[in-house]
Simulated scan of single mutants.
Amino acid sequence: MQTFKGCAVISDELVQMLFYTNGEIVRDKNQNIMPNGTVLLGGV
Rank of each mutant, 00 (worst) to 15 (best):
M1S: 15
Q2R: 12
T3G: 14
T3N: 10
T3W: 15
F4T: 07
F4H: 11
K5Q: 11
K5S: 13
K5N: 11
G6T: 10
G6D: 14
V9W: 06
V9S: 05
V9D: 01
V9R: 12
V9I: 14
V9H: 06
I10M: 14
I10C: 14
I10S: 12
I10R: 11
S11W: 03
S11G: 06
D12L: 12
E13A: 14
L14F: 09
V15D: 14
Q16V: 01
Q16I: 00
M17C: 03
M17G: 02
F19G: 00
Y20H: 10
Y20F: 08
Y20C: 01
T21E: 02
T21C: 05
N22Q: 01
G23M: 06
I25K: 07
V26C: 05
V26T: 09
V26P: 00
V26M: 05
R27Q: 08
D28F: 05
K29G: 07
N30D: 10
Q31V: 05
N32V: 05
N32D: 08
N32Q: 10
N32M: 05
I33L: 03
I33A: 01
I33E: 03
M34K: 00
M34D: 02
P35G: 08
N36H: 13
G37F: 09
G37A: 09
L40H: 02
L40D: 00
L41V: 07
L41F: 14
L41C: 12
G43I: 02
G43E: 01
G43A: 06
G43L: 00
